[in-house]
Design a protein around this nucleic acid. Structure first.
Lengths: 256, 256
DNA sequence: CGCGCCGTTGAGCCCGTTCAAAAAGTGTGG
DNA sequence: CCACACTTTTTGAACGGGCTCAACGGCGCG
């Protein structure tokens, strides 16, 4: 029986010391000693096909992850069948660390958009990690607080921004997040974003149809083009101008 | 010159050991030794009048807080003058811990709804706190992760729930959060919620006018009444039934 | 070449907004 | 205790942003 989206466990993957995404991730400002420690806490390296499920709402809250490569997203399903995307995950992103809310179950699901590679850690190792490597614990806290700030930005978008503003904001955020991951970009103004209009809709709280109309409208105004997974932004400042933002966080200076 | 909403610093307030809200808060599962440690980290106890500003977007990100008594809220202003409430704060709630996003500035503001009392801690003490009292550090991490889960729930509301569902969800959440704070309630079905319809609107991403119409409609269906700051819910399960939720977190088993 | 997913476009509707005004609280000072 | 000011709630009427339903087109892939 073939598992949908296929999971593959391997022990093979670059060591943390030489990992190209490490400087983005949980283990960024660490000393060599702590990086080695991180390595020992890593329980597996797992690869999934595009569309594969990483974890599901209701499953046991036992693993935490760093996305080594590829794109994924965190989401939640509703009683009426709707879906809300909570966060897009890019290489180096840390995710799956959820407070224990009593049931020991996950409240959200995660799914791969492209093929992905995951560094898997065990939740039960956290206490030991805290005890033996304080810097790792502090870093974990910092990452979680950072995610909260990003979530608050998402709340602002959904609560108070128009469809055009939401989409402008999201695309600009993704544009910047992809850009800081590129070592030597050829074209500063173009980034690859492997999202369908439906995924954008589920993140922005809109319908796919209306996302299409809004993007088309932005294209007509020469603010951006988004075709065959390539986002082109001739003038990022102009895009920022229509995003109705109140500070520059995520828009001009994303950290992750 | 009188400061709007007046701030008052006092050293007077119950010691942490005897604090009635401690079991809700950052310091909940701690040993007596750690509670004493927490006490030593507390830099001030501050009281504000209703409507007073606790901190503002753009100010220095140097203090963190536990709300000792009263109601407050975290919010963000937008370029176009709009306002989005991110979180309502009740007694025992921990807030103001924000990741450093480079500028060292706060991205959000906080304001008192009723008169409030705040336990003030210094951000710069955190490192020492982590080092010397591991349990406090772990607890801080847990609280932050918990806040993230709550924020995700808010995202789901704003992105995918109708006005009626959002309001039902918010009122039910607040109903439960107030209830677990009451030691011996007289009337299980009635709680005091000092929010105006405008505050509810700014949290739910709606207009005050539409919040009014929606609440009136819920009252006509005998699902709840909300008059002169008293929320009455004859049948919480029935209210939950219209909230379009996908799990019971916050709706039937809030932790804070 | 055919199938399936994704993007595009149109027409009509509805939920929530906007603008406006009045009614009902709430607090304050005399 | 009343008068006055201000805040909050309530209600009406009209508008519009985004949704729904539906159909078609295009591109990738087997």
């Amino acid at each position: 029986m073939k598992k949908a989206g296929g999971t593959q466990e391997t022990g093979e993957a670059a060591h943390c010391e030489t990992c190209s995404v490490r400087k983005l991730a949980l283990f960024q400002p660490l000393s060599p000693k702590e990086v080695v420690a991180a390595q020992t806490f890593r329980r597996a390296f797992r690869e999934l096909k595009a569309g594969g499920s990483i974890f599901r709402q209701g499953s046991a809250n036992k693993e935490i992850y760093t996305l080594h490569h590829g794109w994924a997203y965190l989401y939640q399903n509703l009683a009426d069948g709707g879906r809300q995307i909570l966060r897009f995950l890019l290489s180096g992103d840390f995710f799956g660390f959820q407070a224990d809310v009593g049931s020991g179950e996950r409240l959200h699901s995660a799914r791969a958009i492209t093929p992905v590679g995951l560094c898997v850690f065990s939740r039960s190792d956290l206490l030991e990690m805290f005890k033996e490597h304080l810097e790792l614990g502090i870093r974990l806290t910092w990452m979680t607080a950072y995610e909260e700030v990003v979530a608050y930005e998402h709340i602002v978008s959904l609560g108070r921004r128009s469809a055009e503003e939401r989409i402008a904001y999201l695309l600009l955020e993704l544009y910047n997040r992809v850009r800081i991951r590129e070592r030597n970009p050829q074209d500063i103004h173009t980034v690859e974003i492997p999202l369908t209009q439906e995924l954008i809709a589920d993140a922005c709280g809109l319908t796919q149809v209306h996302v299409n109309r809004t993007i088309k409208s932005l294209e007509r105004k020469n603010i951006l083009t988004f075709q065959s997974r390539k986002l082109h932004v001739p003038d990022p400042e102009r895009l920022a101008g229509i995003a109705n933002h109140s500070h520059d966080f995520l828009i001009t200076k994303p950290i992750l």
